[in-house]
């Protein structure tokens, strides 16, 4: 498989050097693998630190900036970062108001962020944590590692980031982040497998005429394989999977997310189908975001995330943000 890389071993640091070159308002520590908002820590402001395996760009590094994250810690491709990264990032962005760790619910991320919290607390940094676990495709959570964190991560980082920017204290930022997570559900579909640089080829076989329902964002196969469906059928299936789990009684934010290799032309067509299904199911949509935000390398496919919002969450969603991946209002 052809890839635009030098060697697989340096994919992450190579990208970090590119982020540094392209975004002068970010501070990039290539050696310790931290992307930070320039000027951090900001007096009186709660610091927001996230991180996770690479391969999901723009998540998380692309969401560092005013109104969102203070720092992001990228791991190797699809591998959680190590505790030293988050502990170092927390110390660097802490103004004394404490730091919120935003952690996607994967065993590796949870363990490494837990260890990082211990290290940071030893250094006198107050840490709060929020786990993102929005993926309804994982049904038997009691007998597994639990639901995965996927698209809702963007909602959590944006809304918690807006609250922190306004000067909300750590416990308030953390409780808002948890509220957003609890109000969010996602479902994802793959049309192709993705290829990791280390493997050099697809991480699973998905024949031409089939699609994989209920995928995560790490190239792991989903729960069910079916004959290829139309965009409308995929929207019906995905939205219904979410609505079986959460019946919104307020308007929703809708993230229509591309997995990396699906053209925006197709993704907007899919967004129209998602809106059609939501209208049929009598779910009001407050805002819609369409694009490649929580990706899985070169996977073709999409995910839908719905987040039920009240006026306060919607106000924080609409608040200004200036990051490489998400930017409005400033």
């Amino acid at each position: 498989m052809k890839m635009l890389i030098n060697v697989p071993e340096t994919v992450v640091p190579d990208a970090l050097r590119g982020i540094a070159a392209a975004h002068p308002d970010l501070t990039v520590d290539v050696e310790h693998r931290i992307i930070m908002r320039k000027g951090a820590p900001f007096e009186g402001k709660v610091g927001l630190v996230s991180g996770g395996g690479s391969g999901h760009e723009p998540l998380h590094g692309g969401f560092v900036g005013r109104g969102m994250l203070d720092a992001a810690c990228p791991g190797e491709v699809f591998t959680s970062p190590v505790p030293d990264q988050m502990a170092r990032a927390a110390a660097a962005v802490d103004s004394g108001a404490g730091v919120l760790f935003i952690v996607k619910n994967y065993t590796g991320d949870v363990l490494n962020f837990d260890m990082a919290a211990e290290l940071a607390e030893d250094e006198g940094v107050q840490i709060a944590k929020v786990l993102v676990n929005d993926d309804v495709a994982v049904t038997d959570s009691l007998y597994t590692a639990g639901r995965r964190g996927t698209g809702a991560t963007l909602f959590v980082e944006k809304i918690a980031g807006a609250a922190a920017e306004e000067g909300a204290p750590l416990d308030r930022v953390a409780s808002l982040a948890r509220q957003v997570n609890e109000a969010s559900r996602s479902f994802g579909v793959a049309l192709t497998a993705c290829s990791t640089p280390a493997k050099g080829g697809p991480t699973f076989d998905l024949p031409d005429g089939e699609l994989e329902l209920g995928i995560g964002i790490h190239g792991e196969p989903g729960r069910e394989r079916r004959a290829m469906m139309t965009s409308g059928e995929i929207a019906d299936f995905s939205v219904d999977a979410i609505l079986e789990d959460m019946r919104p009684d307020a308007p929703v934010l809708a993230l229509v997310n591309g997995m990396g290799a699906t053209p925006l032309l197709e993704l907007y067509g899919f967004a129209a189908e998602v809106h059609r299904v939501l209208a049929e199911r009598k779910v009001a949509v407050a805002r819609t975001l369409v694009g490649n935000y929580v990706t899985s390398l070169d996977m073709a496919g999409c995910s839908v995330t719905l987040c039920q919002v009240d006026e306060e969450l919607l106000r924080l969603w609409d608040a200004p943000v200036a990051t490489p991946g998400l930017r409005w209002g400033y």
């Binding site: 395996g53 970062p81 190590v82 505790p83 030293d84 994967y106 590796g108 363990l111 490494n112």
Partner: peptide, 12 residues
């Protein structure tokens, strides 16, 4: 291993 592996394998 904790400082260089990442994932679940590093801490475990």
């Amino acid at each position: 291993l904790i400082s260089s592996v990442g994932g679940a394998s590093g801490p475990l």
